[in-house]
Design a protein around this nucleic acid. Sequence first.
DNA 1: TTGAAAGCGCTAACAT
DNA 2: ATGTTAGCGCTTTCAA
Lengths: 351, 351
Amino acid sequence: MTEQPRVPVTIYDVAKAAGVAPSTVSRAFARPGRVNADTAARIRQVAHDLGYRAHPVTQAPVTAQTRLLALMISDVANPFYSQLIRGAQLAATEAGYEILLADSRESSTRERAALERLVPVVEGFVIGSSRMSDSALRTIAKQRPMVVLNRALIDVPSVVADNVSGAHAVVELLRDLGHDAATYVAGPEASWADGVRFRSLRDHGAHTGLTVSRIGPFLPTFEGGLAATRTLLEKLPSAVIAYNDLIALGVMHGLLREGVAVPEQVSVVGFDDILISRISLPTLTTVAAPMRQLGSTAVKNVVALINGARHRSTEALVMPVQLKVRGSTAQRSRKRVSPALGTTIVSGSSS
Amino acid sequence: MTEQPRVPVTIYDVAKAAGVAPSTVSRAFARPGRVNADTAARIRQVAHDLGYRAHPVTQAPVTAQTRLLALMISDVANPFYSQLIRGAQLAATEAGYEILLADSRESSTRERAALERLVPVVEGFVIGSSRMSDSALRTIAKQRPMVVLNRALIDVPSVVADNVSGAHAVVELLRDLGHDAATYVAGPEASWADGVRFRSLRDHGAHTGLTVSRIGPFLPTFEGGLAATRTLLEKLPSAVIAYNDLIALGVMHGLLREGVAVPEQVSVVGFDDILISRISLPTLTTVAAPMRQLGSTAVKNVVALINGARHRSTEALVMPVQLKVRGSTAQRSRKRVSPALGTTIVSGSSS
DNA sequence: TTGAAAGCGCTAACAT
DNA sequence: ATGTTAGCGCTTTCAA
């Protein structure tokens, strides 16, 4: 491939070089039939030589709406978003919109840059998960209709999963299984859900006799969970609650690799209920949120905003969650593990 | 939320209604400082009452390039694309572009609609996987620089994984393990890779003494694999090769659920090497393609095209693949399965 | 078949 | 602080 200097070439340049009127050039491209075949051929030749490219934006009638919506998420590779994306797509299709997926890759800088670049192009935003500050988010919200997911933001319509109830259910499950302490493996610090989950776990735990400590932050990925295992092994808890399923799965694998039995020695709980959690071995106990609904609700709301609806309530819309009890949690064992050796020693229960 | 009739309101409407000049309205929004606070407030009020929305496209200086690239894939939820997307994003960031992800959800109609909507907005296309016809794809390629992945398309630059060699390696592996027949579980018919994989398997199998039959098409998902299991159980082969890992995983689980041991009774092979394949039980033998490189190479090429490079070679760029032999394949057993009962019976080898 | 000219909705000089 | 005016790159009447 040979590079050429990049100076935007317009139809005027082409017209001049080809000795025709700009409108003829326009027609040559836009409605091929309406122009003399020879003229058209010559124009195309000249255009090609000049390196002409139709301008991305003005090409379409400037009055046209783009019917494009942007959905911003922090990592497309995270299966957690699959259903959310599906829901959003479904609702968008129904409303005659197309969803453009933007991926911040867990970086607030990238997120902001992408958002800013999209403002002139899309009619509205759905923020699936943001790593930006509330105020930065509000700045964008001022420019285009926006709905935020997984974060409660004053003055911007938001839809969140009921993380508080989910955390309470987890605490109660573990208590019922005889655990009296658990370690929370934290995800990204900029994640709103992370904060809510840990605080809810800790506070409700304090009320009901489950001491929840925290390690992290870790990347919200399988690798992140693997990394967390090292810390966990230093002082192995009988129960681990992870920020999300991917971390939980990583932890589970990390533990199994070290010879620690899950759930016999350590119970593991996640959040999200992604596909793998249903097919891993053991299957993962997790808090399932109605991701698909979250996505479609959000899109319906932006579309309503675009159509002139007004946002009223200052409260976030809360969607119910469900605790899926599966194979990775079990009655607390009376055994204690010496992780370095991977052997087990019998002991009384400790606080 | 209250809906309102949708008649595009411009700054001129607002200006007239507020008794000011259009430019004042423009400034009130674009440059808040430069306008009397009272006037600005009044304008905002009027604008709001009229349901004014900044026009998505003309808002930015019309001369600006969008610096946006579209990446079209057939299913964002398929982890197969994760690395491809990453590669594309990395290369795009480096070139100062933003990647917009578009998802056809396995539908050529949706794909075409999305592509057409994106033409005026993006500077170039990377088609990660297409369900459209070659000619339909070429139509879009005429309007914007385009690079196609996973499909060889004459006149349009394309980058493909070396499916042929991958298939050959699979055939040889299975032969070496003593198998003399295998069933290929097909994916989407519109998938170019599907055709190449099956033909390569069948042809190379014919040469080396592995009879490859085909069932399908099935959805390229875990559920698709589960569905395929039913057909497979009717006449259980000693080896299954799936269009992709997701199907392979579905098949594996479907078989295990029915009491068929993998790999003892049936060997299973996939294509792609997605994350789960490394952590499933058993781990999955699969053909790994350099997805990340595919993505970044494609993006580098569109960017070059945008910058005026010319596409020359009519051949697709072929990237090497690697067979990862893992836990789901084993020496062919002498036992035969009576799948309906889930029991095993000893028998001699059969053709 | 082709040219001239008028916009599309908005921003940015340049005036006032 | 605000109004006037000239474009942005392209398409589209309207004439010729």
